[in-house]
Design a protein around this nucleic acid. Structure first.
Lengths: 130, 130
DNA sequence: CTACACCTTCCCATCATGGGAAGGTCAAGC
DNA sequence: GCTTGACCTTCCCATGATGGGAAGGTGTAG
């Protein structure tokens, strides 16, 4: 399987596969006689793992830790759970921050006429010196 | 006022002030005879506006649009409100995405013993081929 | 044998921010 | 007047994750 098929099969773009290899997240695959990267099913499986971890918001570095735990058959589940819950806390913190911004702005907008007149509490507030 | 004082007074770092100037978000300030940037109160006011817009999650580019509206005394408040509500929607979308990740992961973690045994539904699920 | 789809590496761009080097400036204290 | 230390200048580099694209090699179908 060439990189294009591996990308297709894993949902990770070819660009990203090369990048993950370059930074050491994944193992360099075999190469064909002409230098093409050659992937087998286990590689694709790993790539899918990476894609799922990324889609759960883990950074590439965190994904590397998860991958190490995944490959270590003797890991303690508490280590995984700890990592996961720490990440959950970070995600929720970021979500809360975004929602606070949204709430503030929505509140400001609710006081704005939204017509042709120039008066606008949104700009007034952002520009106020308080 | 030199850049350090302007940074102090506005809450925008000196590095960022120079950057905002470089990309054209803010006007280049006056310069002293020796080339130091010299800021007056209106400049600081603008910097505070920028800081507040950024803290509400507006990108630098969006902040530029807000700044233009802010300076345009004849703007229509509907334009501001439209921009603001569009941004609110984006913020809420991002927040929801993060919360969905957190919820998924929290759910997986709730099924993980979190002890010394290696069995871990979190890794199982991330690594599953479904 | 040609055409086309694929592969390779390499460089660049994004977005917002910080770090740091090399060198100039200014004010305070001796 | 001279030194010292805190400031300022510009310039380059790094981050994190991703994509774009160029230049050139490969593989296969017709």
């Amino acid at each position: 399987m060439n990189i294009g098929q591996a990308a297709e099969a894993s949902g990770v773009s070819a660009k990203m596969i090369r990048y993950y290899e370059q930074i050491g997240l994944i193992e360099p695959p075999a190469r064909s006689h002409s230098g093409y990267r050659v992937y087998a099913e286990p590689n694709v499986h790993t790539l899918r793992f990476v894609r799922r971890a990324r889609s759960l918001g883990f950074s590439v570095e965190e994904t590397g830790s998860l991958l190490a735990l995944w490959r270590d058959r003797s890991r303690a589940s508490v280590d995984v759970k700890t990592l996961a819950l720490k990440h959950v806390a970070e995600l929720e913190e970021k979500a809360a921050a975004l929602q606070a911004m949204a709430a503030t702005l929505r509140h400001l907008a609710s006081h704005c006429h939204g017509d042709q007149r120039p008066d606008c509490p949104i700009l007034d507030k952002i520009g106020s010196s308080n």
